[in-house]
């Protein structure tokens, strides 16, 4: 794909872009940040696949974007504000009813402080 883009559209790319790849150690670090327990047998597979994806997205660094403003959103919308008034009824019970573990109106989690 990278090859394909370069041949077809050389005018939109700068001369070079870095080849990025992630080591199994970096995958372990990213999984930790993302709060995902990593199955050790899958670490290498993830490292390979994610490196391929990063190679694909690495093409972006070769795009000529000097002076271009980042676009966060279509239509460059701004978040609408509403009046600071109560608009919803209390639905505590409905929301607690779908929680995995609750007691006395509180969400239960494993002990945090010994």
């Amino acid at each position: 794909m990278a090859q394909f883009i370069r041949i077809a559209y050389p005018h939109i790319l700068n001369d070079s872009y870095p080849k990025m790849s992630l080591s199994p150690e970096q995958i372990r670090q990213v999984a930790k940040l993302a709060r995902l327990e990593l199955n050790p047998s899958l670490t290498d597979a993830y490292a390979g696949q994610i490196s391929n994806i990063l190679e694909l997205v690495g093409q972006l660094s070769a795009a000529k974007t000097e002076g271009v403003g980042p676009m966060a959103h279509p239509l460059d919308m701004t978040q609408r504000l509403r009046a600071d008034e109560v608009s919803q009824p209390d639905q505590r019970e409905a929301f607690q009813a779908i929680a995995p573990a609750v007691q006395d109106g509180l969400y239960l989690v494993p002990k945090v402080i010994e």
Binding site: L60, A63, V68, P70, M71
Partner: peptide
């Protein structure tokens, strides 16, 4: 900056 910000800039080029 290298990924997210750059992607947002290219997004504007596409737009």
């Amino acid at each position: 900056d290298a990924y997210y910000l750059q992607a947002q800039k290219v997004r504007r080029l596409i737009y």
